[in-house]
Design a protein around this nucleic acid. Structure first.
Lengths: 123, 123
DNA sequence: CCCCGTTCAATGCAACTGCATTTAATGCCA
DNA sequence: TGGCATTAAATGCAGTTGCATTGAACGGGG
């Protein structure tokens, strides 16, 4: 169990660090921004902020700010929700979708490298 | 691979969150503080800050500050290194050792619960 | 119909992190 | 010995996070 925790910790650290660097330098996205875009793309419909909150590894406040950044960057748009005016819908824009598909191969490459290294270490 | 990454991400998030809460509330330690104490106890000798840096999932600057906090709390002491006066040795104090052994069962309990839940989810 | 407890999202705030830089000490080579 | 590239640790700084709070909207019970 402690062993597994060590694995989670080191994998997380290495992957996060590399993702931050690669996604940031090449696409201007942080890991959180990417994860949020990913969730939205995969749902392929308008999402309530609150639904996103359940799927993303962020607090409600952090998510609120990530979405704010994404909106400022023009990658998503926020819209009021008619049925419940407390709610906020998030839609991905064309730019957002493009940026996401641009970044996806980078993320995959980083993960491939990290998990490759981790199996190499176990050998 | 993406599947594994999801697992790492969610396990890390849940465990970190719970550790922060439990270790913080019950022992006044953050996860980083605990991890550093853990590394020191397990070596059972004076450690150079730099050696710690290789073992802990923190940047050099973050480690420097964690150790500073631990020292302020009286849990470790920093000492100059005779052979290389740039270096700094870190020793755990009796209080530090006591606090660590106090916190260890809490950490184990948290991990047990988290990994229990994660296998439950996989079922 | 009006309250009051609840829920959604945003924001103030303090803490922690990493990057880049600084300061100090080494050690190698001319 | 003097200079210079390198390494250790500390620190300035900006960015992100979570907690707690706020403000707005809902909705059920009296």
């Amino acid at each position: 169990m402690v062993r597994t925790w060590q694995y989670v910790l080191s994998t997380h650290a290495r992957a996060m660090c590399a993702l931050e660097r690669e996604l940031g330098d090449r696409h201007g996205l942080g890991p959180s921004e990417f994860e949020v875009l990913d969730r939205i793309v995969r749902h392929d419909r308008q999402l309530r902020l609150q639904e996103l909150c359940d799927e993303v590894h962020l607090s409600q406040s952090a998510l609120s700010r990530v979405v704010a950044r994404l909106e400022k960057a023009g990658l998503v748009s926020r819209g009021a929700c008619d049925s419940d005016r407390r709610g906020v819908f998030v839609c991905i824009t064309d730019d957002g979708r493009a940026r996401y598909h641009e970044a996806l191969p980078t993320q995959r490459a980083v993960l491939a490298e990290v998990f490759d290294d981790s199996t190499a270490l176990a050998r």
